[in-house]
Simulated assay, not measured.
Amino acid sequence: MFGKPIIDLSDKVAIVTGSSRGIGRAIAEHLARAGARVVISSRKPTPCDEVAEAIRGAGGQAIAVPCNISEKAQVDALVDRTLAEWGKVDILVCNAATNPYFGSLDGLADEVFHKIMHNNVLSNLWLAKRVAPGMIERRDGAILMISSIGGLRGDPLIGAYNMSKAADMQLVRSLAVEYGPHNVRVNAIAPGLVKTDFARALWQNPDLKQMVERRTPLGRIGDPDDIAPLAALLCSPAGSFITGQVLVADGGVTIAAAW
């Protein structure tokens, strides 16, 4: 007789930041479908409540804990509330990010650069440091950061954002080395262009969307449900021998010729 499915997250507790919509919501839903108890978190309470209610309505387990990841006190409160409710954190998905600036780095104000790096990198480190002790004690845990193929490429419009995503990739490698001896895995996913509200300025531009589709071997941009199953795999026993890696999910655009 076969045992449990290899992507089985029964009895696991997962925090997913930025999970009221887009990729984060899809990841939370897939984790819940695999049996995890999921914490839905983003800045605004009402969207978090709606997603958590939808997951519960579909038979999953979820609570909503609003959090502005730029505030360390709120990051601490997010983890504390999870521990109070469910006693542990087995899975952390750092999906929340910001990109308030499009344009040349010549025009990038210092305070905007600091905001991007603070929200997209430092907050991920805060979260990892908060959940790691419990994972280390149990000798089991998975931390996943949602990066971007922008961290692998140069770009004249989103250079600062791309720097933050490249930094996340290095953060993953460094934490994987530190936490690996304790059986805590740390990985990243680097999506290509995905149809989310966050990337609306890109995929709603017909010329840009057509250009990306033309250069992408699979001939289309991504959907949040293209990313979420990969996240579930990396956070489950199916990914038990994967750590310190950046898995690209971009329809092949980064390996294709530019013409």
Rank of each mutant, 00 (worst) to 15 (best):
M1K: 11
M1A: 14
F2G: 02
I7C: 08
L9M: 09
L9D: 07
S10C: 11
V16M: 10
R21K: 14
I23R: 09
I23A: 08
G24C: 10
R25I: 00
I27K: 13
A36W: 03
S41K: 05
S41Q: 03
S42W: 04
P45V: 12
D49G: 03
R56H: 01
R56I: 03
G57Q: 03
G57A: 09
A58P: 02
A58K: 14
G59M: 09
G60Y: 06
G60K: 09
A62E: 03
N68D: 14
I69N: 09
S70Q: 06
E71R: 11
K72D: 12
A73C: 10
D80Q: 15
R81W: 02
E85I: 00
G87T: 01
K88M: 04
V89G: 02
D90P: 05
S104N: 14
L105R: 09
G107C: 13
V112T: 15
H114C: 00
N119P: 00
S123H: 11
W126M: 10
W126D: 15
L127A: 15
A128D: 04
A128Q: 04
V131L: 07
P133T: 14
P133N: 13
E137P: 01
E137C: 00
R138F: 12
R138M: 06
R138V: 07
R139Y: 00
I146M: 13
I146C: 11
S147V: 01
G150A: 11
G150Q: 10
L152T: 12
G154P: 08
I158G: 01
S164G: 11
K165C: 02
A166D: 02
Q170M: 14
A176Q: 02
V177T: 06
G180W: 12
P181R: 08
N183I: 00
R185K: 07
N187R: 02
N187G: 08
A188W: 06
F198R: 00
R200E: 14
L202K: 00
W203C: 01
N205V: 07
D207T: 13
L208Q: 04
R215T: 04
L218F: 11
P224T: 10
P224D: 12
A228Q: 15
A231G: 12
A231Y: 13
P237H: 02
G239S: 03
G239N: 04
S240H: 12
S240M: 08
F241C: 09
F241E: 10
I242N: 09
T243V: 10
T243R: 13
G244K: 09
A249G: 05
D250Y: 13
